[in-house]
């Protein structure tokens, strides 16, 4: 419990900054929506001017972008990207901290098992993510409600918003695994690099329309168009995600527990 509280405190500042930034970006974009719907036809025409591959790469769909949920999904795809950077950063950083800051001699000579250390850190990371998501969701819901002229399906809105957390969990698990396996000197290049690699894969997949890519990049697991149409997630991907997280997290526990902690 003390490790959990300690870690939570350490990441408090960065969690607040991430939360506020994500909320601010969303509020900024959503506040453009009323102006956009006024000139919906002009806007669509403008977007038509872009070549189709570009539109696909950036996830712009002409039919839905002028609807509230369509526009929200578009903006939201960047929120997910940022959220995943936060999640991966958190995962890599929280488990590699002892090695990076050379505090392993402090923490790991205390009367705790390595598993307890991993559990406390995982829990702190997830709590930070949940905190970010709750506050973001509140800000997003309020903004969306205030800019919508027509009623929209709140359930679908929540499902889209929640998918961010689901994708973030995968990157958190991946980050923790990376931190358990590798010895990490600096966190940001690793987390940014990994998340962007998957994001670019996602963009490429959209352009070439290859179905198999959907399985490779978590950014494609929760397709907003599908959620809007069916008001549900695709069970197959929930299953794959659950499987991935279980494997990554258990591997992290095992590797971290067996690791030799060398003198600095």
């Amino acid at each position: 419990m003390n490790i959990f509280l300690h870690e939570l405190k350490v990441y408090r500042k960065s969690t607040i900054v991430w939360t506020l930034s994500l909320a601010a970006v969303l509020v900024l974009f959503m506040s453009m929506f009323p102006g956009l719907t006024k000139d919906a036809a002009d806007f669509q025409k403008l977007l038509q001017g872009y070549p189709e591959p570009v539109r696909k790469a950036f996830g712009i769909s002409l039919e839905s972008i002028t609807s509230l949920l369509g526009f929200y999904s578009y903006v939201f795809s960047y929120i997910v990207l940022c959220g995943c950077i936060q999640a991966m950063n958190l995962g890599v950083s929280i488990l590699s901290k002892e090695a990076r800051e050379k505090t392993a001699d402090f923490l790991l000579t205390k009367p705790v098992t390595r598993s307890q250390v991993v559990s406390a850190k995982l829990l702190a990371a997830i709590s930070s993510l949940i905190m970010t998501n709750i506050i973001f969701l509140a800000a997003a819901a309020m903004t969306t409600l205030s800019v919508s002229q027509k009623p929209f399906d709140m359930g679908t809105f929540l499902m889209i918003s929640l998918s961010a957390f689901l994708v973030e969990c995968m990157f958190l698990a991946l980050g923790v695994l990376v931190a358990a396996v590798m010895s990490i000197k600096s966190v940001l290049p690793i987390s940014l690099g990994t998340v962007f690699a998957f994001y670019i894969l996602n963009m490429l997949g959209s352009v070439i329309g290859e179905k198999a890519v959907r399985y490779l990049t978590p950014f494609k697991y929760y397709d907003t168009a599908y959620i809007i149409r069916h008001a549900s997630y695709e069970p197959r991907f929930i299953f794959i995600e659950a499987l991935f997280i279980v494997i990554a997290v258990s591997a992290s526990y095992i590797i971290y527990s067996k690791k030799d902690i060398h003198a600095v």
Binding site: K102, T103, T109, P111
Partner: peptide, 18 residues
């Protein structure tokens, strides 16, 4: 290990803290 460490005080050669 955890049980034993309750009764151990350790001072490393180089100290690093948060």
């Amino acid at each position: 290990a955890p049980e034993i460490k309750r009764e151990i005080g350790y001072l490393p050669s180089e100290v690093f803290y948060y």
